[in-house]
């Protein structure tokens, strides 16, 4: 139980000098960006965290990051996974550094965990002590704020979110009710780092609890 489910980077490529049409289509600015870095992974939420991590290590911007419908098991091909992330920079070297940082984060830090013994209930109780430019822009928080990035399947996630909000001095920044692209439910909480950690642990414990006894007392 609670074994990490390591994310797998399925494909990653760089475009040192991208065509302006491509830059525009993916939200980059041809006046400021020339190079792109692309990455697909079989877990979307760790990748959002990893892309944000890249903005802390290199002068890159996350210009595009979208999850694919119904998740990695229904990807359009073996290298599609669950998400495509695109970072843009003025300098190809920055892309290189940014991708390195994202990869480091996916290998060592951000990942889903199995909330039951079989590992079929995936939960993402991730604490970011200090968010980068990407998540700051997405959440409306400031760069450097702490965030609890919480993801679980719909019912588990809803119960656990309520528990987490009551367990620590945190507030909900954004809640993504189901169904999302990947049919999970997610929430971004903020507070001090300690509060975010307490909330994440409570969230995880609640998901484990639901996974142990999904039907609860009422139907017994």
């Amino acid at each position: 139980m609670l074994a990490p489910l390591p994310p797998i980077i399925l494909a990653t490529r760089r475009i040192p000098n991208a065509d302006p049409a491509v830059l525009l289509a993916y939200g980059a600015d041809p006046a400021r960006h020339t190079a792109l870095g692309l990455l697909t992974c079989d877990q979307d939420d760790p990748t959002y965290v990893a892309l944000d991590e890249a903005t802390k290590h290199a002068a890159v911007e996350v210009v595009f990051a979208r999850s694919f419908y119904a998740g990695a098991a229904h990807g359009s091909g073996p290298f599609s996974g669950e998400i495509l992330g695109v970072i843009a920079a003025a300098d190809p070297e920055e892309i290189e550094e940014g991708l390195k940082a994202a990869r480091r984060c996916l290998e060592w830090d951000a990942c889903f965990y199995g909330a039951n013994d079989a590992g079929t209930v995936a939960v993402f109780p991730h604490v970011i002590p200090s968010i980068g430019a990407y998540l700051a822009a997405q959440s409306g928080l400031r760069v450097g704020d702490a965030m609890a990035y919480l993801v679980a399947p719909p019912l588990e996630g809803t119960i656990a979110l309520d528990v987490a909000l009551k367990a620590a001095d945190v507030r909900a920044v954004k809640i993504f009710p189901p169904p999302t692209e990947t049919n999970f439910t997610a929430a971004w909480l903020t507070g001090t780092q300690t509060a975010c950690e307490a909330a994440a642990v409570a969230y995880l414990a609640a998901v484990v609890d639901v996974a142990r006894d999904p039907l609860g007392g009422a139907f017994r």
């Binding site: 139980m1 609670l2 990490p4 060592w108 830090d109 951000a110 965990y113 109780p125 991730h126 604490v127 002590p129 950690e197 994440a200 642990v201 995880l204 414990a205 484990v208």
Partner: peptide, 11 residues
Amino acid sequence: MRTRALVEQLR
């Protein structure tokens, strides 16, 4: 890395 340690503790 912090999250991994927290999950480990709860486990």
